[in-house]
Amino acid sequence: GLAVTNRPVGAYRQGLLVSHDEPETGPTVDEERDATNFSYVSWGAIARAMDLRVDTSAANDPRFR
């Protein structure tokens, strides 16, 4: 799964994309533990790569549109 926000989150001043993968499998994975990974990516970096504008102003809240 994944989630994204354009709101400042800690050091991610232009937002954050978080992805979560399925449990890892294979001979080196501890069978007693569901090993999963989270990835944290700057939404600002993604927006720049896609030529998108990021607006983190307080008035830019889609819940109130």
Rank of each mutant, 00 (worst) to 15 (best):
11 A>P: 12
12 Y>R: 07
6 N>F: 11
28 T>M: 10
13 R>V: 02
65 R>W: 04
65 R>T: 07
20 H>R: 15
7 R>D: 01
63 R>D: 09
2 L>K: 11
5 T>H: 06
9 V>K: 10
45 A>G: 06
49 A>R: 15
5 T>D: 01
59 A>H: 09
23 P>Y: 13
15 G>R: 04
42 S>M: 09
18 V>M: 06
12 Y>G: 03
56 T>F: 00
18 V>C: 05
32 E>L: 11
5 T>I: 03
17 L>G: 04
48 R>G: 08
14 Q>V: 04
63 R>L: 12
35 A>I: 13
60 N>D: 10
24 E>T: 11
25 T>M: 09
19 S>A: 06
35 A>H: 12
15 G>V: 09
40 Y>G: 02
27 P>D: 15
15 G>E: 03
8 P>S: 07
37 N>T: 12
45 A>F: 05
35 A>L: 13
62 P>H: 12
54 V>D: 01
13 R>C: 02
62 P>L: 10
6 N>H: 13
24 E>C: 08
7 R>N: 03
8 P>M: 03
25 T>Y: 06
7 R>P: 02
11 A>V: 11
51 D>R: 14
21 D>F: 02
39 S>E: 10
50 M>V: 09
57 S>Q: 08
10 G>P: 03
12 Y>S: 05
54 V>E: 00
34 D>Q: 14
10 G>W: 00
44 G>E: 03
56 T>L: 00
12 Y>I: 05
54 V>Q: 00
3 A>K: 13
16 L>W: 04
51 D>K: 15
61 D>N: 15
29 V>M: 05
28 T>Y: 13
31 E>H: 12
28 T>E: 14
32 E>S: 15
34 D>K: 14
14 Q>S: 12
43 W>H: 07
30 D>C: 05
44 G>S: 06
59 A>E: 13
27 P>F: 09
54 V>I: 13
24 E>F: 13
41 V>W: 10
49 A>V: 00
18 V>F: 05
58 A>H: 00
65 R>V: 09
39 S>I: 07
58 A>P: 00
43 W>G: 02
30 D>P: 01
54 V>C: 05
38 F>S: 08
7 R>G: 01
27 P>N: 10
61 D>K: 02
55 D>T: 04
2 L>S: 14
27 P>Q: 11
65 R>M: 06
54 V>L: 05
1 G>Y: 09
58 A>D: 10
15 G>H: 06
26 G>N: 08
30 D>V: 01
7 R>L: 07
8 P>I: 07
35 A>P: 02
28 T>K: 10
7 R>W: 01
35 A>K: 14
62 P>D: 11
60 N>M: 05
60 N>Q: 11
16 L>M: 10
52 L>Y: 15
22 E>A: 14
31 E>Y: 03
34 D>W: 10
53 R>C: 07
